[in-house]
Computed example of a mutant assay.
Amino acid sequence: MGAQATQTAIGPMIIVAADQYEASPLVRDDWARRVLPWGGRIVAESARWAPVRRMLMSATDKRFRGGWSSFLCRKRYIDDQLVAALADGIEAVVILGAGYDTRAYRIPELAHIPVYEVDLPTNVSRKTAALRRAAAGVPANVTLLPVNFETDDLTAALGAAGFDGDRPTFFIWEAVTQYLSESAVRATMEHLAGAAPGSRLVFTYVRKDYLDGREMYGAEPAYRDLVVKRGLWTFGLNPDDVAAFLDEYGWHEIEQVGSLEYGSRYLVPAGRNPTVSPIERAVLAQR
């Protein structure tokens, strides 16, 4: 994950920040705009006007049909699973590839739970500066941990940061796997294979048939940019192969969700257009 990939953390958070100006945001996040760099804050602030929001949504969906709703729904889904897991006794949270994610700051149930935000050194530096600007700095229960998934030992880095592997932990791996090599994905899963019993994992992945160019799903411009031109998206899975992939590392698939589930659970009840990109799917698993 290089410098180009780090910039992709900004776009989805702008979408979340813009959605706060809707009558009923899918994800309630007062932190989203505050942690963005100044350019992102300007765009997010301008989205208070409905015509600007519609313009941003149209531009996103022109490149990635259903992408706007997909970004919001995946975040809402992960939030729901995290809150449910905390109620069931999860004792720690590890966010892999945290970017500008704000869960540790906006979800009240996490206030006294150790949270480890793992990301590239550049992103950790930017996040630290953003928290100093937006608040009093990094909360005492949160550790920002610089790790390159391609080259660093995640197990050693977490251990050195004080992570207790005997605690049931909720691992979040949102919108990251597609940017990694298969060897890096599997190395990370090797670490997760040592998680305590009762731990849970939510991760997202991009469909392999899209990365292979066999099915475009209405996202040809994104394919030409992210896959062909810049080579940022490299790893994918077939939905039917996910359970076996998890089983290799001692995890059990609880459920797998995508466009249909997002539409029926979140968009239709909110009176929104249920069009969601099917390219990216989310998986909930347990040890």
Rank of each mutant, 00 (worst) to 15 (best):
N238K: 13
G194V: 05
V202H: 00
D209A: 12
D88F: 02
G137Y: 03
Q256F: 01
N123A: 15
E190H: 12
R76G: 09
I90H: 07
P269G: 08
T169E: 09
Y77P: 02
L260F: 12
L56F: 08
A59G: 07
V115M: 09
P221V: 01
R65G: 00
A5N: 11
Q4R: 15
G137F: 03
I279V: 15
Y266Q: 03
L260A: 15
G213H: 10
K127Q: 01
Y217C: 06
A59P: 01
S264H: 14
L232K: 08
A160Y: 03
S70E: 14
K75C: 03
A160R: 14
G236N: 11
W38T: 11
V142R: 00
R224F: 02
I42D: 00
G162V: 10
G194N: 04
E182C: 10
V227E: 04
A47V: 03
A111V: 14
T177R: 10
L180F: 05
R41N: 05
M189G: 11
A219D: 06
I78S: 02
A243R: 13
A3K: 13
R287E: 08
M216P: 00
K229C: 02
T151C: 12
Q4C: 04
R132Y: 05
G99H: 00
V242F: 08
R106E: 02
S125T: 15
S181Q: 15
A130L: 10
T6G: 14
G162C: 12
F235G: 03
D30A: 15
I113W: 00
D19P: 04
V124S: 05
D240A: 14
Q81M: 14
A134W: 09
D247M: 13
Y210T: 08
L232G: 07
S259H: 15
G194M: 04
A140W: 02
R48M: 14
A104F: 08
R34H: 11
L72M: 12
A244N: 12
L56I: 09
D29L: 01
D152F: 06
L267D: 00
S181A: 15
R106W: 02
G66E: 00
F71Y: 14
A157Y: 03
S264M: 11
L246T: 02
P51D: 12
R133M: 10
T169K: 05
K62L: 13
Y21G: 09
A44H: 03
N238R: 15
P269R: 07
A160L: 09
A85R: 00
K75S: 07
E190I: 09
M189D: 11
I107E: 13
A135E: 12
L36K: 01
E280I: 12
T234W: 09
V93N: 04
V27D: 00
S183L: 13
G99E: 00
Q286N: 07
I15A: 11
V227G: 05
E261N: 14
R41W: 04
S183Q: 15
R167P: 04
A222G: 06
G40L: 03
D88Q: 14
W233M: 11
A195N: 08
T234Y: 07
Y210F: 15
R54T: 08
A243N: 07
L246G: 03
R76E: 10
V227T: 09
R103Y: 07
